[in-house]
């Protein structure tokens, strides 16, 4: 034991850099990933978005040309519009549905675990599996449309995956199915954190349950809502696999999304500069969403 202590004493050399050496060695992966990949990679991509790189990256500056081209490409504009529509609708519906389901589960029901398991299991599945199942259910020849027509409504039309105007609805049905369970679990955790006495007090005051939720509980759960909001939005920006599996961007370019634009531009059309400009725009979008949130968190901590 004494030798171990001597080793430890010996491992405290006067040079500051070598103090606590094992810990610094163990931190090497974190430093490499943080600086090398996250910071370095981001800077590299942003830098190369100002070049005319095509098949291979090179530093031939063209200023903002790639961005001008990007914002005059119809496919990119469609992608942005799709992401905005999908994003807003999915955000609102995920939050409402997630909270509603959590509130139902919080009403002291029987079989709570069973219901929670049912609502959450899609979250364990990949977007590829999700997309392929819903592609089959929404198949116009065999799926929901065919069944409702078979019931006698011959004029019933619901083929979102083959109709450019409805294709986002198809994506939403599948996306909500996969993702609401997560928000429900987070909301449920928030609801369970609320003091039982608050419920007792509102009951004594004779406030109806639905009103209690709106005027008392939801304002109290503001931090939970903010977290859920950040989580859902950062998931929406990443939307890619679901589109690939369900529609491959079609019909035509009706369901293209920015993440897919980046992938296709980088790896199939080999127009690197353009792909870097598009991915930089995605980064800017995330920053616009995150900076106010980070600022808010920071201010709350200081108070």
């Amino acid at each position: 034991m004494s030798s171990a202590r001597r080793v430890r004493d010996g491992a405290r050399p006067p040079i500051r850099l070598l103090r606590n050496l094992s810990s610094k060695i163990a931190a090497i992966p974190m430093v490499l990933v943080g600086l090398g990949v996250f910071v370095g990679g981001t800077l590299w991509t942003v830098l190369h978005s100002f070049t005319d790189s095509r098949l291979l990256p090179r530093l031939n500056w063209v200023g903002l040309d790639q961005y001008e081209r990007l914002w005059s490409t119809r496919r990119w504009l469609v992608s942005i519009e799709n992401l905005a529509v999908y994003g807003i609708v999915s955000l609102v519906l995920t939050m409402c549905l997630g909270f509603f389901l959590a509130a139902l589960l919080d009403r002291k029901i029987r079989y709570e675990d069973t219901f929670r398991t049912i609502f959450l299991y899609p979250f364990a599945l990949s977007f590829i599996v999700t997309g392929l199942v819903w592609q089959w259910i929404l198949n116009p020849e065999f799926g929901i449309q065919a069944i409702i027509r078979g019931l006698g409504f011959q004029n019933f039309n619901f083929d979102p995956l083959y109709n450019p105007d409805l294709v986002i609805i198809g994506l939403l049905i599948a996306g909500l199915w996969q993702g609401t369970g997560l928000i429900m679990v987070i909301m449920l955790a928030g609801l369970r954190g609320i003091d039982e006495d608050i419920w007792k007090a509102t009951r004594v005051d004779g406030i109806p349950i639905w009103k209690t939720y709106i005027i008392v509980i939801i304002p109290m759960m503001k931090p939970v809502f903010v977290t859920a909001l950040v989580l859902v939005t950062s998931g929406i920006v990443k939307l890619y696999d679901l589109v690939v599996a369900m529609t491959a961007g079609g019909p035509g370019i009706a369901s293209e999304v920015p993440a897919k634009y980046v992938y296709d531009t980088l790896f199939t059309r080999q127009n690197l500069g353009q792909g870097f400009a598009a991915s930089t725009m995605m980064l800017v979008t995330v920053a616009i969403i995150l900076i106010p949130w980070a600022y808010m968190q920071f201010r709350e901590k200081r108070q």
Binding site: G34, F38, G41, Y263, L266, L272, F276, M282, V286
Partner: peptide
Amino acid sequence: FFGILLLGAFIPYQVLLYP
């Protein structure tokens, strides 16, 4: 370094694919 690592969670994968 920990802060930098956490920020990395919010960078869209597309930005880091090619690097």
